[in-house]
């Protein structure tokens, strides 16, 4: 597995640095028309870094090829076969991504505390170990509320209440 992994790491690094160098820097690093003195332009440093990163990515690929060749006698798996074999792990990882994305989207909508309660419940479910159900349920409810109280009292942080609940509360007040 390791020679394969080194190869893919090199490939991903090369692709990433090439993308930054040829696509992101020309678009997102603006060079001003006037630079005081003899100071280097703002895109110089990112370009230096990405070129070094690109060269290292290519070196990682080149170093991995002989290792893969040596390992070929035993077993080298294609990326498709590797993904198929690890499909459960990939699904779980996608689940984590989905959970984080939903939390980020839901936080301003339903409020900080309800969103963290849901996130904690989701993470407990994702651990796959339900031998301590009571603890999990208790912590899911108590822990975020406790943290909310501590942070609002100690640091006076204004946590988002959520558009949804604010709107519902406003409607309720209007109704009354």
């Amino acid at each position: 597995m390791t020679p394969n992994r080194d190869f893919y790491t090199g490939l991903i690094a090369t692709a990433f640095f090439a993308f930054v160098l040829f696509v992101l820097i020309p678009i997102y690093v603006k060079v001003p028309s006037f630079i005081p003195g003899f100071a280097p332009p703002p895109d110089m440093w990112p370009r230096v870094i990405t070129v070094v990163g690109l060269v290292m990515g290519i070196l990682a690929i080149l170093f991995a090829i002989p290792k893969m060749r040596a390992a070929a006698n035993d077993r080298v798996m294609s990326i498709g076969a590797t993904m198929h074999r690890n499909r459960k792990l990939i699904v779980r990882f996608a689940g984590v991504l989905l959970g984080f994305a939903t939390f980020t989207y839901a936080m301003p909508e339903i409020g900080f505390v309800p969103a963290t309660i849901l996130l904690l419940a989701y993470l407990f479910l994702m651990t796959g170990n339900y031998s301590r159900k009571i603890w999990m349920i208790g912590l899911t409810i108590v822990f975020p509320i406790l943290l909310y109280l501590v942070f609002t009292e100690v640091t006076h942080t204004p946590f988002p209440e959520g558009h949804l609940f604010s709107a519902l509360a406003a409607d309720f007040v209007t109704l009354i």
Binding site: L120, F124, T127, N129, R132, L139, F143, L147, F151
Partner: peptide
């Protein structure tokens, strides 16, 4: 157990 601890740590980090 880490199954209880690590999710709580994430929530602590978020706060």
């Amino acid at each position: 157990p880490q199954t209880l601890l690590l999710p709580c740590i994430l929530v602590l980090c978020v706060f």
